[in-house]
Design a binder for these strands. Sequence first.
DNA 1: AATGAATGAGATTTCATTCAT
DNA 2: AATGAATGAAATCTCATTCAT
Lengths: 215, 215, 215, 215
Amino acid sequence: MGSNNESRTIRDRNARTPKRTNGIRRVAVILKAGEEVIAEKGYESATMAEIAARSDTRIGSLYRFFPGKEALANALIDRYRENIDLAFDAIDAEVVSLSVQSLADRLLGTLLRLHPKGAATFRLMEARPEWSIKREELRSVALRRIAQTLRIHSPRLEESLAQDVSTVLLLNMKSMKAFAIMSDRERASGALRELHRMNRLYLENILTPLHPDEN
Amino acid sequence: MGSNNESRTIRDRNARTPKRTNGIRRVAVILKAGEEVIAEKGYESATMAEIAARSDTRIGSLYRFFPGKEALANALIDRYRENIDLAFDAIDAEVVSLSVQSLADRLLGTLLRLHPKGAATFRLMEARPEWSIKREELRSVALRRIAQTLRIHSPRLEESLAQDVSTVLLLNMKSMKAFAIMSDRERASGALRELHRMNRLYLENILTPLHPDEN
Amino acid sequence: MGSNNESRTIRDRNARTPKRTNGIRRVAVILKAGEEVIAEKGYESATMAEIAARSDTRIGSLYRFFPGKEALANALIDRYRENIDLAFDAIDAEVVSLSVQSLADRLLGTLLRLHPKGAATFRLMEARPEWSIKREELRSVALRRIAQTLRIHSPRLEESLAQDVSTVLLLNMKSMKAFAIMSDRERASGALRELHRMNRLYLENILTPLHPDEN
Amino acid sequence: MGSNNESRTIRDRNARTPKRTNGIRRVAVILKAGEEVIAEKGYESATMAEIAARSDTRIGSLYRFFPGKEALANALIDRYRENIDLAFDAIDAEVVSLSVQSLADRLLGTLLRLHPKGAATFRLMEARPEWSIKREELRSVALRRIAQTLRIHSPRLEESLAQDVSTVLLLNMKSMKAFAIMSDRERASGALRELHRMNRLYLENILTPLHPDEN
DNA sequence: AATGAATGAGATTTCATTCAT
DNA sequence: AATGAATGAAATCTCATTCAT
């Protein structure tokens, strides 16, 4: 068992490195499949078997990478959190150069842009009461990031008001995402225009008094 | 020539209408229990056994009145639709005497007021893709009623604008309901204030130009 | 309770007689419905509820007339036996005047003619092992009657041969009934002709030697 | 653009093909048990639990290979069809050397010889109206094979006559099988002799004129 | 390491039959 | 006497997870 170590090490190093790459790729493929299936059917109705099939993984292998359905779910939620952070990093990088209206629009579309990757996460958080904690965490991250973005843009905005405003903006961002699910494409464009209008109206009402010279 | 009566043979998948007082009470109790359990756990995780237990019904009796989990779900959805109509009837009865701000606030709270009776319905409509039809129906009823209310209040409001505005108001109403689920009571009051502010701001922006003499 | 006996007796005699007639009619209607449903779905799949519905009877009333599913089944079997006897009575009434060929054809069609009333019976006897006794009884009645008919027609036919021949004739009669179920009407006529041919061929081969003067 | 793979999502309602030796043995054992139980009790009364118990399989394993009662039934029917073909292959291999009488006897016993493996199939086809399609298929296979055998034996037999004759022979073959179920062993031997006699008589009547030199 | 067979607790649903009103 | 509500044992089927090969 230990006598042919050398030859094996050489062979294995060549063999295993691609296998590890495979492992990383495999995890990504499984997550994608899990995302799809859970987004379509919800957590309870999604089966490990279908996720395995859709990612072209054998069920036994799936359990090697994710030791349970919950583990897979948690991985999806975590990944979504990271995506949120990345999205706000991008906004913050240019926020100082944005007008209030542009900022309003930019924020409004943020969750929508994340949507396909987030759909599963939302269904997950409905599923288990225990996960309402995760939901609060996620919500809390989003609120913090929105408030932070607002204060980067308008440093004179009071901290506590920034938090309350963030709550409302988050609701609008979710409303925006809700449009994505709607099928009625005809009425969608008018509704979209109105949602943008309201969102701008509100953010202007909050931020403009803080920028007197911009008038 | 044959004596086949097809309609008799086909099993009715809807809830049975009870014909005795006992049955009527039973149905009400079951609906209440179903509402609770589904609101708590979601459709898939809610079990007929628990609904039976919580309504102090034997499983066989439950199936007498609701010949399947779906039948129970449909009954809950239907009942919610009726509640929506009743709520708007109440608003419409006094809408002419309401200021724009009062109207904004009144609408905003409508779904929230329906909430305990509607919580299950929302979880139901997430559950099954087939039920997106029911979802659209419900949504469509709500939109129609909001638009109707707006035009009773402001007859000069254009029909097509009324529809677009309704879409946004409905989103706000749902956002309001989302507060009910949140646990973070501390921040809730400030957020609530902001949501009201935005909603009023928006509705005034829409309706005030139509009432020039009210200025 | 016993004081108004007289007036009741008079009233009841008028009232009850139609009710009894109703009872007889009701039993007939239920039997018909039971026959249909069992013939279509088989004993296990037939439900008392459907039989009640199809006979426009309330389930509680159904159980007044037939105190169980088995009781209903037994009644159907018994009625079928009576029908067999009636059918053979009719044949026997004219058997002496029949040629061998006519007798062959007459017998062949007997079960077929009984078919709609017998279909349920056959499904019943498949259903429960306990009912194979009933099956044997029925079979035995049929065999006895066929043998009897043969010996009325050809008294010189030996008793034991008559029994063996009856067994084969009964098979042919059942084969004939099997045609009724077949859907392939095109090929049916040729097949029918062949079955008749075989049946005649056989019965002539048995009976003709016993009627030397008829040649 | 979407990555939905429909074929993967749709659940396969047929029996799964096992890929390990253990699985293959298991499937065979389950089929045998299913055959027995269904033959004894009929489709509706046979329970998956009993089939599992009789094949010493846990219920979950049973459902792994046969994802439903119907799947098991279909597998049994399919296997029976294969057996029919094998049986006729055997007859056809020696049919040219058979006398008419031998051929008659050989055919007559064919279904009987298949019997224990076919008993379940016949009960299955009574069970569900939907399966009358399968019944017709099976019937059609049998008829085709009988006709083919006849024409191998007597090439001068007309095609259309061959088909009609096959229908009758098939009836006789089924009659023969019906004897197997009968318990009355005493009378069976005489009846058996008569059935053989009729069957020979008939086939001679059909085929002999086509072989004038054999007289 | 990869695979797929095994497991069984638990969910939904059915229906003959009884019985109170 | 007529009705339909109540009952619960029993059947079908699902699926996350483990483990032997």
